[in-house]
């Protein structure tokens, strides 16, 4: 849920520098990033997985819902991965094609990750930027609210919300996103505090630009480096959270599925000779998370002037 604080601390410096040195830093950062083999590998893996998630379905010979009746009830013997019958990854316990379902699961998990992170980042950045820009009492009240919200055990509240309002993908996105914006808002605020005394902001104020316009046009774009790195580290935590929610049986609605749901189902069946039901989804899950972590670390290092 909470990317570690060093990241956040390092980010502030990084983004600060980004702003001072202007455009050349982005080029620098790109070079630095490209030198980091793990990060580049992660990026390649991410691109491949995204392609798999969005276009892998075209290779599937079965739909995600269709039951292969002859295999049903006979999955352990006949339902394994096979090119011959078109089930590249085997079938699940009901005889549905695991390849098609893994493609769908990967897509939904990625979406949950991205949308959740996007909500957190957008809400957090705006909230932090507004608090930091206006300062004074507004800032005090807004940050006290964040303090209070931080003390609420949000995973519990999320479970309550899902149990109570029924599950829907939308609810999941919103629920997870709403948990995670608090840290982002603190970081954004701190950064805004230093930005707002810069000449270009003062110039904008002097010619009478309205505060909200200043925040959107001048402050937020300068928070971008920070936001991107934070988001990269947030996506995998979102995906992990989603898998936990699926484990509790509160995830996406059947027949749709997510990696978390597939893994949770596969984990229950692992000692029954159908290990592919766990192995394939888990592989994509782990590779995705690995990739995000490496890309995130790479980005942070690239944007961080202190050469490690």
């Amino acid at each position: 849920m909470y990317p570690d604080k060093t990241t956040a601390a390092g980010l502030v410096d990084a983004a600060h520098l980004a702003e001072v040195q202007g455009r050349s830093l982005w080029k620098d950062a790109r070079q630095r990033f490209m030198r980091n083999k793990a990060a580049v590998a992660g990026l390649v893996a991410l691109v491949l997985i995204t392609l798999f998630a969005f276009f892998g379905g075209f290779l599937a010979q079965w739909s995600t819902e269709e039951i292969d009746w002859p295999l049903m009830g006979n999955v352990a013997q006949a339902g394994g991965p096979s090119i011959a019958n078109g089930h590249y990854f085997g079938v699940d316990e009901l005889g549905r094609d695991l390849y098609a379902r893994t493609v769908q699961g990967t897509r939904i998990s990625l979406l949950v990750g991205f949308v959740g992170a996007a909500i957190a980042v957008i809400v957090g950045t705006l909230y932090g930027a507004i608090a930091g820009y206006f300062g004074g009492r507004t800032d005090g009240v807004m940050m006290r609210i964040v303090d209070i919200l931080m003390a609420i055990p949000f995973m519990f509240v999320l479970i309550l919300m899902l149990v109570i309002f029924g599950r829907s993908i939308l609810m999941l996105f919103i629920g997870i996103g709403l948990i995670s914006w608090l840290d982002m808002s603190r970081i954004a605020r701190g950064q805004t505090l230093t930005l707002k005394n810069k000449e270009f902001v003062e110039a904008a104020i002097a010619i009478g630009v309205r505060p909200m316009t200043i925040i959107l046009r001048h402050i937020v774009p300068n928070l971008l480096g920070l936001v991107i790195v934070y988001a990269t580290l947030l996506v995998p935590t979102m995906i992990i959270t989603e898998s936990f929610i699926s484990f509790l049986g509160l995830g996406v609605q059947e027949p749709a599925t997510s990696l978390g749901a597939l893994i949770s189902a596969g984990a229950g069946q692992m000692q029954y000779g159908v290990i592919w039901q766990l192995a394939f989804p888990l592989f994509f899950f782990i590779v995705t998370l690995f990739a995000f972590f490496f890309v995130g670390d790479g980005l942070r290092d690239a944007l961080d002037p202190k050469d490690r």
């Binding site: 819902e65 269709e66 039951i67 316990e93 009901l94």
Partner: peptide, 25 residues
């Protein structure tokens, strides 16, 4: 869930009827 999924497939394949599954806690 498994029973519902199987039934919905039977209806779709035999009768051409679409089903949506709604599970609630």
């Amino acid at each position: 869930r498994n029973v519902a999924v199987a039934m919905s497939q039977m209806w779709q394949q035999t009768l051409g009827i679409q089903t949506t599954l709604a599970n609630q806690e």
